[in-house]
């Protein structure tokens, strides 16, 4: 049965509930991911993100509600259009690099010749072509993660679902992954990813849903979500020591001489900056805008309002 809720909708989750025994893990969750989105799926550990993804991919059966991909309940006919990188992921460590990539490409419906060509192209892109005949167990951890990603990307999917794709990656490989995701998105792929690295999310995501204890806490475009938390947050680069003053502002992050200060309802941004100068803080640079996603995330997780 096909549902046309939204012409551009790639993922449609409506009133999704998933319980294990009597314990609800996902509670009445709803959101849409549109075609071309780089969509962040955020939440603390154990908040129900992986369970929601498993429901989307029919690995788990929802207790109630619907989870649709390309307008349909997931079935394996869609597998060739989807690339899934689960949180719990491994490899056939005794197998060779090339045969692993080709095997999964074939399972996703590619011909052997096409699979080999795509595998070589991918290995070349991630600088592993010299290792095509190497047993996976002989590769470094970072190289193995590139193979895991290769399994996900080899069929050039229309939709990528990545559960913590940067987990365990060093900065170089993390940067390479971001480039790859950018390329795929530019080529029309929709990307849904789970991450705890809010700086990465801010760099690449355009929309997000944040869940807390299985329920939706925030949902919308990155800017919309951040605006809900004000537009008067002061981001400063400074020298000296920022004094503590709860009556005047709240500091959400202070490290490496970079701080994020949000005035209270009784004060203005000018009051805060004047206060800092009076306390011999040298301000090198400052901007006023929305809080960082890191700040938003911490607020949501600590707040009882959500």
């Amino acid at each position: 049965m096909r549902y046309n809720y939204h012409v551009e909708s790639v993922i449609h989750v409506k009133n999704l509930v998933k319980s294990f025994g009597k314990t609800p893990v996902v509670k009445d969750l709803s959101f849409d991911v549109n075609k071309g989105d780089v969509f962040a799926f955020l939440g603390a550990n154990g908040s129900g993100k992986t369970t929601t993804i498993r429901c989307l991919l029919d690995i788990l059966q929802p207790t109630r509600g619907s989870a649709l991909i390309f307008g349909n309940k997931f079935d394996l006919a869609l597998a060739s259009r989807i690339g899934y990188l689960p949180e719990e992921r491994g490899l056939y460590t005794n197998a060779q690099v090339m045969e692993t990539l080709v095997y999964f490409a074939q399972l996703k419906g590619m011909t052997t010749a096409d699979a080999k060509q795509k595998a070589l192209k991918y290995l070349d892109r991630v600088e592993l072509s010299a290792h095509h005949a190497t047993e996976i167990k002989k590769l470094s951890s970072g190289q193995q993660q590139k193979i895991q990603l290769g399994i996900t990307l080899i069929n050039a999917p229309d939709l990528l679902i990545l559960d913590e794709p940067t987990k365990g990656l060093d900065p170089v490989n993390r940067s390479l992954l971001m480039e790859l995701l950018d390329e795929l998105n530019e080529n029309g792929a929709t990307i849904v990813f789970v991450s705890h690295q809010m700086d990465e999310v801010e760099k690449i995501a355009n929309r997000l849903v944040m869940i807390k204890n299985g329920s939706q806490a925030l949902y919308g475009s990155l800017q919309e979500v951040k605006k809900q938390f004000g537009t008067n947050t002061i981001h400063i680069t400074y020298q000296g020591e920022i004094p503590s003053n709860d009556a005047m502002y709240r500091s959400s992050s202070i490290e490496n001489n970079v701080a994020e200060l949000t005035p209270t309802s009784e004060t203005s941004t000018n009051d805060v900056i004047s206060h800092l100068i009076q306390h011999n803080v040298i301000i090198n640079d400052f901007t006023i805008g929305t809080p960082s996603l890191q700040d938003v995330f911490v607020k949501v997780m600590k707040s009882e309002q959500y």
């Binding site: 597998a79 992921r89 490899l91 056939y92 996703k108 399994i151």
Partner: peptide, 17 residues
């Protein structure tokens, strides 16, 4: 057992019955 131990099972579930 190896399929499970190698953590490949979830990827397989998203591709094959």
């Amino acid at each position: 057992s190896e399929e499970k131990e190698n953590r490949m099972i979830e990827i397989m579930f998203s591709i094959v019955e």
